[in-house]
Simulated assay, not measured.
Amino acid sequence: MQIGSIAGEAAPIPSAVLRAARLHIVGSGIGSVSPPDFIAELPESAAAVTGGRLDVQARPVPLADIAHAWDDQSSKRLVFVP
């Protein structure tokens, strides 16, 4: 399950779900990695993306088209570029 903050600050989970399943909750995102660790990994991550070893499902969208692209329902992440 992926929960992003765009859906809201809270993610209520019924207690029955917690009791009935072996559930592990793990955080991720910018806040879960220290800035020095993030910076240290950035060159290798960028090389993996540009080298085709990491498939990033993203669609670049010019800022001029932001109003049109905002309602995009595709599964690709939108990356707004100047």
Rank of each mutant, 00 (worst) to 15 (best):
D37G: 03
T50G: 09
G8T: 00
K76C: 08
G8E: 05
G31V: 11
T50S: 14
V26T: 14
I66G: 04
P43N: 03
I25K: 04
Q73C: 06
I3A: 13
F80N: 04
S32Q: 04
P60F: 03
H24F: 09
A67I: 11
L23H: 07
A67G: 10
A11K: 14
R19K: 11
A10L: 13
H68M: 13
A21H: 13
R59A: 02
D72G: 00
G52T: 03
A20G: 15
L23E: 10
D55M: 06
L42Y: 03
A16Q: 07
D65H: 05
F80W: 09
M1W: 12
V56F: 02
A47V: 01
S45W: 12
P12T: 00
L78A: 01
R19S: 07
A69L: 01
V81M: 00
S5F: 10
D55E: 09
G4P: 06
V33T: 03
S28Q: 12
K76D: 12
V26Q: 11
G51Y: 03
P62T: 09
P12N: 02
F38H: 14
A69M: 00
I25A: 09
R53D: 14
A11Y: 13
V17Q: 14
A67V: 04
L78G: 04
A64Y: 02
L78Y: 00
D37H: 10
S34F: 15
D37I: 04
A46D: 05
R59W: 06
K76F: 06
G27R: 02
V33Y: 05
S32H: 04
P12S: 01
G31T: 09
W70C: 09
L23D: 06
S75K: 10
